[in-house]
Design a protein around this nucleic acid. Structure first.
Length: 104
DNA sequence: CTCTTGACGCCGG
DNA sequence: TCCGGCGCCAAGA
């Protein structure tokens, strides 16, 4: 389609594409996404996932402290544990040292 | 065009 | 370690 009515902007598509590439059992932080895309910043990634994250594995994207997205922490933890993601002793934070994915 | 909101990150105390 | 505040950026009204 020639001119996309563009629900997701070009920037949003890049964020969604990267999140869709995160393998099961692995996670990425909002800051990592911003680093790979080299733009938008952590807030930009969060804004995109908040609007269009429903089509991708949004639970694999966590905050820099290892805690899932605000307002969806419980739903994300359920999925993460189910995929075998390593959690911290507190049980509410992801062990980024072991579960962080290395993007190509 | 400006103003506000929000799935964030970092620094200081 | 935990709590609060400031900064940054995209999307919506």
């Amino acid at each position: 389609m020639a001119g996309s009515t563009g629900q997701p902007s070009e920037y949003a598509e890049r964020v969604l594409d990267l999140v869709a590439r995160i393998p099961p059992g692995r996670v990425l932080t909002y800051g990592d996404i911003a680093e790979v895309l080299e733009s938008g910043g952590p807030r930009g990634a969060g804004t995109v996932l908040a609007r269009y994250g429903g089509g991708v594995s949004w639970w694999r994207v966590v905050r820099a402290d290892g805690r899932p997205a605000s307002g969806h922490e419980r739903a994300a933890l359920e999925r993460l544990v189910e995929e075998g993601v390593a959690l911290r002793p507190d049980g509410v934070r992801v062990d980024l040292a072991r579960a962080r994915w290395a993007p190509p």
